[in-house]
Structures are given as C-alpha cells and as structure tokens.
C-alpha cells in the first residue's frame, strides 16, 4: 500500500491504495475481476456500479491477455475532494492497435469476441483513456467515481 498526494489540474487528488496484478493467462482475468469486485465493495460502490466496473475490468483484462499477449492491471483507490473512485490501468507490450477509431467501434473485432470490449467498457465507466503504439503496446486507463 502506498500513500501519495498529487496535484492534478490544480486539484489535490490523493492516491490511497495501489495494487498491481499480472494479467497473463485466462485465469488472471478471473483474478482481476475478483480484485476489482473486492475494491469496489471496499469503496462502497452501489451494486450496479460494482457490476459495471467488474464487467469493464473483465473486458479489458481479456483484451490484455488475448490481443496484448499478457500484461498487468494496476488498481488505484483515489480520493478527489469529497468523492472517491477506482482507477484501473491495463498495460501490455503487445502489437498495439493500428486503427484506434476502428477498434473503438461497436461490433468490430479482430479476435473472437463480440466486438463490444473497448467501446462497451468505455460506456461502463466515467473516464476512459487509451494510449497505443504499434509494436510497443497498449495502455487503457478507466476510472469510476462513486
């Protein structure tokens, strides 16, 4: 567990807790889901918000395993002013995404999914950020505020 205070846009955002999990094999997707569920419960998210966050984590963790060739998930509990939130960062050193707008489209998939992974996960959270470089890897950060 770490404690740090960071300035973001002039506002104080405190990082209360940070964990990192490997996301390499399919079993890790289940572990990632369970970790996110546990933290969401700790943050007293409503059942619907818990479910949304866990589902988004499941989609992104699977992407990390299937398309990114494995990577990590970092979970961070944040306090920003009066509200608390959960931020998840999925990082891999995979092939990257050549066409971002295509990847963000509903129903588009390069693998065997339903093509709802990225766009769907984005709809389930408050903040969504994706950075990808071909040949280097992909990093997706999602945040849900209570």
């Amino acid at each position: 567990m770490t404690c740090a205070i960071r300035m973001m846009g002039g506002q104080v955002m405190a990082l209360v807790k940070s964990e990192e999990l490997p996301v390499r094999i399919e079993q890790d997707v289940v572990m990632a889901r369970q970790a996110v569920r546990r933290l969401s419960v700790e943050l007293k998210f409503s059942l619907v918000d818990q479910t949304k966050m866990v589902t988004a984590a499941s989609e992104l963790a699977r992407n990390t395993v299937v398309y990114g060739g494995g990577g990590t998930m970092r979970c961070e509990v944040l306090i920003d002013g009066g509200k608390s939130g959960l931020r998840l960062t999925f990082e891999d050193q995979g092939p990257g995404i050549p066409d971002m707008s295509l990847a963000m489209k509903d129903g588009w998939t390069s693998g065997g999914g339903m093509g709802m992974g990225l766009s769907g996960a984005k709809r389930l959270v408050n903040d969504f950020e994706i950075v990808s470089e071909v040949g280097k890897g992909t990093r997706v950060t999602i945040t849900r505020w209570k």
Partner: peptide, 14 residues
C-alpha cells in the same frame, strides 16, 4: 439474470 447484471449488459451494448 440479476438486475445489476441486466443494467450493465444493456450499457455494454448487448
């Protein structure tokens, strides 16, 4: 299907 799961699925686009 649980209510929270149904709401999430709809939001997911399924």
């Amino acid at each position: 299907m649980q209510p929270a799961v149904a709401i999430t699925l709809v939001e997911l686009g399924l």
